[in-house]
Simulated assay, not measured.
Amino acid sequence: MVDFETMDPKEIIARRVSLEIRPKTLVNLGIGIPTLVSDHLDESLGVFFQSENGVVGLGHRPPEGMTDRHLTDAGGSFTSAVPGASIIDSAFSFGLIRGGHLDLTVLGGLQVDAKGHLANWMIPGKFVPGMGGAMDLVTGAKKVIVAMIHTAKGVSKIVPECTLPLTSQRRVNLIVTEMAVMAPLDDGLHLLETGPGYSVEEVIAATDAELVIKGDVPQMNLSLSV
Rank of each mutant, 00 (worst) to 15 (best):
D3E: 14
F4N: 04
T6V: 13
I13N: 02
R16K: 15
V17R: 02
V17E: 08
I21P: 00
I21F: 02
T25F: 03
L26V: 11
V27P: 06
G30H: 06
I31H: 04
G32Q: 06
G32H: 03
V37I: 11
V37H: 02
S38N: 03
H40G: 05
D42H: 10
E43N: 06
S44P: 00
G46Q: 08
V47T: 02
V47C: 03
F48Y: 10
F49S: 03
Q50C: 09
E52D: 05
H60S: 09
H60G: 05
H60C: 07
G65E: 06
M66D: 09
M66T: 02
D68W: 05
D68P: 00
A74V: 09
G76V: 12
S77C: 08
T79K: 01
T79S: 04
T79M: 02
A81P: 00
A85F: 03
S93P: 05
G95T: 08
I97S: 06
T105H: 01
T105P: 00
G109W: 09
L110Q: 04
L110S: 03
V112T: 06
H117D: 03
L118R: 07
V128H: 03
M131N: 05
G133R: 02
D136C: 07
L137K: 11
K143C: 05
I145P: 07
I149L: 15
T151S: 12
A152L: 15
A152Y: 13
P160S: 15
P160Q: 13
T163K: 14
S168Q: 11
R171H: 13
N173C: 03
T177Y: 09
A180Q: 07
A180L: 11
V181T: 13
A183P: 00
G188L: 13
L189G: 01
L192S: 08
L192N: 08
T194H: 06
P196I: 04
Y198F: 15
V200I: 15
V203W: 08
I204W: 00
I204V: 09
T207A: 07
V217C: 05
N221H: 05
N221D: 13
L224D: 12
